[in-house]
Deep mutational scan, measured.
Amino acid sequence: KNAAQIVDEALNQGITLFVADNRLQYETSRDNIPEELLNEWKYYRQDLIDFLQQLD
């Protein structure tokens, strides 16, 4: 998997990933985040941060 796929997957589930103060953050109206997504975000944290910062 790559960062773009993970960001896309999150968006499809109503979750927006973004970077604030060099930390990976998310916004969602969901009550909870599936644990497998959280684990994936932790595992790919630096890739996601790098990818999202390139988009800014």
Rank of each mutant, 00 (worst) to 15 (best):
E36Q: 11
T16Y: 15
D8R: 15
N2I: 08
I6L: 11
N39V: 10
S29N: 12
L37R: 03
E40T: 07
E27V: 14
Y44P: 01
I33N: 02
L38K: 08
S29E: 14
E27N: 12
Q25A: 08
Q54L: 11
R30D: 07
Y44S: 04
Q13D: 04
Q25L: 13
L17R: 00
D31I: 10
L24F: 04
T16Q: 09
L24W: 01
I49D: 01
N22K: 07
K42I: 13
D50G: 06
E40V: 07
A4G: 07
L55K: 13
F51E: 02
R23E: 15
L11V: 07
Q46L: 10
L24M: 03
Q13P: 00
N32T: 13
R45G: 10
T16N: 08
R45Q: 15
I15L: 03
D47T: 13
L38I: 11
E9S: 05
E40C: 06
N39M: 12
W41G: 01
E36I: 09
E35C: 09
Q46C: 09
L55T: 11
L52V: 03
N32P: 13
Y43P: 03
I33P: 05
V7D: 01
E35R: 08
D31K: 12
G14S: 04
P34T: 09
R23I: 15
N22V: 05
E36F: 09
L37S: 03
Q13S: 08
L37H: 02
Y26R: 01
T16W: 12
T28L: 03
P34F: 04
A3H: 02
D21E: 09
N39F: 11
F18L: 07
R45K: 12
S29A: 11
V7M: 05
Q54W: 09
Q46D: 11
I6W: 02
N22Q: 08
E9K: 05
R23V: 14
A3W: 04
N12P: 02
Q13C: 09
T28N: 04
K1G: 03
D56W: 05
G14N: 06
G14K: 04
L55Q: 14
G14R: 04
Q54G: 12
G14E: 04
L52M: 04
Q53C: 12
D31T: 13
L24I: 07
L17T: 03
E9V: 04
W41Y: 05
E9C: 06
E36L: 07
N39C: 09
S29L: 13
Y26N: 02
D47G: 07
A3C: 08
L52D: 00
P34C: 05
V7A: 03
D56L: 11
Q46Y: 07
Y26C: 09
N2R: 11
Q13K: 10
Y43S: 10
V7L: 07
Q54H: 12
K42Q: 14
N39A: 13
E27G: 06
D50W: 09
L38A: 05
Q25W: 15
W41F: 10
Q53W: 06
V19E: 03
D56G: 14
